[in-house]
């Protein structure tokens, strides 16, 4: 077991699947020549190992996704990289009207086994390059949506996504690429659609995913020193959404906060809150709270950017508020 970065975990998943299955190809903008392998260097070096199967494409996301759909229909397993999730909007018709529709609309006769990998989140890149579309993507029947938070999950989930016979949108938070974690040297898979308890605690349930898991775990450490133990549920897959652990956890702790980076209104958190109260209303000692991003187009200025985003201290504050209130 070695400690590797999130980026390296993704690369290992790609390498293993490329080696295992000759139908796997990897396409994207600037993933071969530029800087030796991608704007975020996930594919660095792979083109030499797998000649002809890692290819640079035109800057035309509607074609990157659409050509991959067509290839997938005929049995190829394309993994396409959309340089940032913001550019996925250019391919929205292909994602929503084509990738997600084919299997059902054609009565099960067409499969679309493809993966769209894309970095989301922020990094001093201003309004058009700092977004999260978790709620949009997770609302589409026919699409699967995955967002790992740790290198271990990133590797196991990406391998499963590549082997899956449905279109999978695989969200990678920009701030996670350099984070490190233990990853086994031996092969393993993590099934799609299964949430994971990342921390056991008795006092309050936090349901979260992606970068906000890291912030929540920091908050949990702070709170543990005060004697408050968080039960932390990492969703890992956003569609289909596995809330079984979260519901079970709420029945135990009787309190819950949903923590997400994206915009609060009509966010994925709203759906999770609705489902939790439908399933566990009589177990709740307090209204379920949300920690989320502020609803503004992301400013460039450092202080303003930080002000829009949730961090560990926001989770701590929300937990304090909930624990202080007597209902």
């Amino acid at each position: 077991m070695a400690e590797i970065t999130f980026r390296e975990a993704l690369k290992r998943a790609l390498r293993e699947e490329l080696a295992r299955d000759p139908e796997v190809v990897v396409w994207g903008e600037d993933i071969v020549a530029y800087g030796g392998g991608g704007a975020y260097a996930v594919t660095a070096g792979l083109a030499k190992e797998f000649p002809g199967r890692i290819r640079d494409t035109p800057i035309a996301e509607e074609a990157i996704v659409g050509v991959a759909i067509g290839a997938a229909m005929a049995g190829i397993r394309p993994v396409v990289e959309l340089m940032t999730i913001n550019f996925a909007l250019v391919a929205w018709d292909q994602i929503v009207n084509h990738a997600a529709k084919q299997h059902h609309m054609f009565n099960g006769a067409i499969n679309v086994p493809m993966v769209m990998r894309s970095p989301a989140g922020f990094g001093r890149t201003a309004a058009t390059h700092s977004q999260n579309f978790d709620a949009w993507l997770a609302s589409i029947p026919g699409l699967k949506v995955v967002e790992p938070a740790t290198p271990y999950d990133a590797k196991g989930l990406l391998k499963s996504a590549i082997r899956d016979n449905d279109p999978v949108f695989f969200i990678e938070h920009l701030q996670l690429y350099g984070t490190r974690g233990e990853v086994p040297d031996t092969e393993y898979l993590i099934p799609l659609g299964v949430s994971d308890r990342k921390r056991e605690g008795k006092d309050l349930t936090v349901v979260t995913w992606g970068r906000m898991l890291i912030e929540t775990m920091k908050a949990a450490k702070t709170l543990a020193a005060e004697g408050i133990e968080l039960d932390v549920i990492d969703l890992r897959t956003l569609r289909p959404l596995d809330l079984s652990l979260a519901i079970e956890s709420v029945k135990k702790t009787n309190r819950a906060i949903v923590v997400e980076e994206g915009w609060r209104s009509i966010g994925l958190g709203a759906e999770i809150v609705a489902s939790l109260q439908e399933e566990a209303f009589h177990y709740l000692d307090a209204p379920i709270a949300r920690v989320a991003g502020l609803e503004v187009p992301m400013p460039y200025a450092k202080n303003l950017e930080r002000a829009t985003l949730p961090f560990a201290e926001d989770v701590v504050a929300a937990v304090h508020a909930m624990m202080a209130n007597q209902y």
Partner: peptide
Amino acid sequence: GHLPLATGLAYA
């Protein structure tokens, strides 16, 4: 919308 799909089938 189907033009990229046809291109992908040709790639396959």
